[in-house]
């Protein structure tokens, strides 16, 4: 075998390769996809850009993915109670035990006023409403961080996630609301109590929607900001607990000294809890002005939240 020749040939092959590379380079230079092509006749279904308009919220996309929202709701339920014996009964256990604790601590030990209402109904009403708000807020505020893995792999309108959380909490609320109704009916039938329900009960769906949107808006703001600055997650965990004491959950608004009432009423949740209690139990304070304040507050928060959320969703995978 003549290896010298082989090596010589291989040298020519190297050269040949160089030629190939050169041809390739030329091809690249001569046929770059230019942007000057006839663009007018082409219709683009979508343009991906660094920045979109602030108000381009793509709510239509969320509607197109409504099946996905329902799928997430279903997943939340099934996965929470798979491999538990009691299953959905756990929905009842939590508010009942909380109410029991409140009765012992605030009713018996601290002897806080309940406006003359049976303590069970009074606390249960507050707990049912507050639970919905706080649980929705806590869940939506971690949307980006908790779903970073899935958000990093596939695109779907990110808003579907917080919206699905709000919906699945509505279902949870309805179950706990059923529990409240049962206890409430028991006291109503037994008679001799101070419970005086009135037509404002019809406002319940409105209250539910306002609460849902308020927690959604706040949750979106927090989840957007925590992608970059984790500090806010710390703030929120105990912030929600503290906020409960700034809401008339364990005490009636009437027991607050007049000069501090504005402080409690500045909290948009106060009017909602008070309205709910007034509607079903007939005691407490209800004013259209207070409720209107909550609604307006919610609308502003929701608007700001949606804008921030939409802005962050485009780049959060880089900063989370």
């Amino acid at each position: 075998m003549q290896w010298t020749e082989v090596i010589a040939t291989s040298y020519t092959q190297r050269q040949e390769k160089q030629v190939l590379v050169q041809i390739a380079e030329e091809k690249r230079l001569t046929s770059p996809p230019t942007t000057s092509l006839d663009d007018s006749t082409q219709e683009w279904t979508e343009v991906i850009e660094p920045r979109t308009h602030l108000l381009d919220l793509r709510l239509g996309d969320v509607w197109r993915y409504r099946d996905l929202v329902m799928m997430f709701v279903r997943r939340d339920f099934v996965s929470t109670y798979k491999q538990t014996i009691l299953g959905p009964i756990w929905f009842f256990v939590q508010p009942l035990l909380t109410t029991l604790t409140f009765i012992i601590v605030f009713g018996r030990v601290a002897k806080l006023s309940t406006d003359g209402l049976p303590q069970v109904v009074f606390y249960l009403a507050g707990v049912t409403v507050w639970n919905y708000f706080s649980q929705t807020l806590m869940a939506t505020s971690t949307v980006f961080i908790a779903n970073a893995a899935i958000f990093g792999k596939v695109y779907f309108p990110r808003l579907t996630m917080p919206v699905s959380i709000v919906v699945s909490n509505i279902v949870r609320f309805l179950i706990q609301f059923g529990l409240f109704l049962a206890v409430w009916l028991y006291y109503l039938m037994r008679g001799g109590s101070t419970i005086q329900p009135n037509w404002l009960m019809l406002l319940t769906p409105v209250l539910l929607v306002v609460m849902g949107l308020l927690s959604l808006g706040l949750g979106m703001i927090f989840s957007s900001l925590t992608t970059k600055y984790r500090d806010l997650a710390m703030l929120l965990t105990f912030g929600v607990q503290l906020l409960m004491y700034a809401t008339p959950v364990i005490y009636p608004l009437s027991s607050i000294p007049t000069q501090y009432k504005w402080l409690i009423l500045a909290n948009p949740m106060s009017a909602i809890v008070e309205t709910f209690r007034y509607a079903f139990l007939g005691s407490g304070s209800f004013q259209w002005a207070h409720l209107t304040y909550s609604v307006v507050f919610t609308a502003v928060i929701l608007f700001v939240g949606t804008i921030i959320f939409n802005k962050v969703e485009k780049s959060f995978t880089d900063t989370v």
Binding site: E43, W44, T45, P50, F151, Y155, T317
Partner: peptide, 12 residues
């Protein structure tokens, strides 16, 4: 999944 820093992509 993430947005570009510059430029754009047109999609049909």
């Amino acid at each position: 999944v993430t947005a570009p820093t510059t430029g754009r992509i047109k999609v049909q």
